[in-house]
Nucleic acid binder design. Structure first.
Length: 121
RNA sequence: AGCGCAGGCCGCCUUAUCGCUCUAUAUUUUUAGGGAGGAAAGUCCGGACACCAAAGGGAGGCAUAGCGGCUAACGGCCGUCACUCCGGCGAAGGCUGGGGGAGGACAAGUGCAACAGAAAGAAUGUACAGGUUAAGCUGUAGUGAAAUCAGGUAAACUCUAUGCGGUGCAAUGCCAUGUAAACCUACGAUUGAGGGUGCCCGCCCGAUGUAGGAGGGUAGGCAGAUUGAGCUUAUGGGUAACCAUAAGUCUAGAUAAAUGAUAAGGAUCCGCCUCGGCGGAUACAGAAUCCGGCUUACAGGCCUGCUUUUUUC
């Protein structure tokens, strides 16, 4: 297993994102929240990351949060692949009001991934 | 040397591991190299470029305002003068150093104005003198920068001169994919529906058309787009902004949006203190068509000029 996160693993389709909001399930592990949905047609798991402009006015802060979330996902996404070949789309959101150290984001991401694995098993 | 003011410059570094993106090279995932800023920000001016109707006339609106220069252009920059502020020298006239410097017109109209004063444009008071049938009718005193004499003010309306067409890369062109020349309603076919990126005129386009409804589909790629009023150095011209010539150089190019994450070490600053360590801090902030400016934010450090204080000679 490689710790990669390339273009194929980014969620881009606006249609899929709309569907995700409409039909997806949500899980929370502060300060992160994830919305996910099974996507049988996909050949990869696809993920997107967001930090709301309402809580983080500066682009620098939003960039940093998204980068840290992406890094945490990249290093720990192997948890998802242990089970069946089902593919999913995800949207990770940062719901905290202030920036957090990387360890906090990393451990929150780990919990989320394990919760999802349990939910889908 | 310290403090203050003004201006300019820099604005953390190295290594390792795991990743992202672009370009070459390989051709099946190797190898090599590039990868945020001085403000990338605010989107306030000016351009390049693109389209809108040949981008034409008018109304309206906006901007600028001593003089000279620079520039592709500007509301920017440079120089300079009137004026003005702070300091030094001098008895004084004045000389000198630094800072500010939106500064056309109040001889067209309208408006505004602290204090003093009876009164600052429909108001003529008090005292004295003159004068008359009578009367602020005349003069002086007093207030003030200014009193039937008019003055000040235009970053007040306004006037004058000059300039400005509009919209912006989500512009625009091409390729691919998909659907439906389907259905309903209204209007209309040269006597013109409707449209052409503010208004009026003019002009242009315009018929299997136009507008609306309901219900579907696509929302990918390429060009624009990263070589440009480019950057560095040298020489020459110019007080300067800047210009000319020569040589060298290629320096981000993403698109649900790369430029990162983690660890270790170092540097600078601050605090504690057992003088060797420990703890903390390292700002403002993230390219999106590209340039030239302006404005605003900024830990810490360096340089230059001036004022002032102290010490030494």
């Amino acid at each position: 297993m490689k710790f990669t996160y390339s273009k194929e693993e980014k969620l881009k389709s606006q249609k899929q994102i709309e569907q995700l909001f409409a039909e997806g399930h949500a899980l929370v592990s502060f300060p992160l929240k994830v919305v996910f949905l099974e996507a049988p047609k996909n050949t990869f798991n696809q993920a997107a990351f967001s930090a709301p402009k309402r809580n983080f006015k500066l682009a620098v802060h939003r960039n940093r949060i998204k980068r840290q979330m992406r890094e945490a996902y990249r290093l720990q996404k192997a948890i998802l692949d242990k089970k069946s070949g089902k593919k999913f789309v995800f949207l990770f959101m940062y719901i905290g009001k202030e920036t957090a150290p990387y360890e906090v984001i990393s451990s929150a991401m780990e919990k989320l991934l394990q919760k999802m694995t349990a939910h889908n098993a």
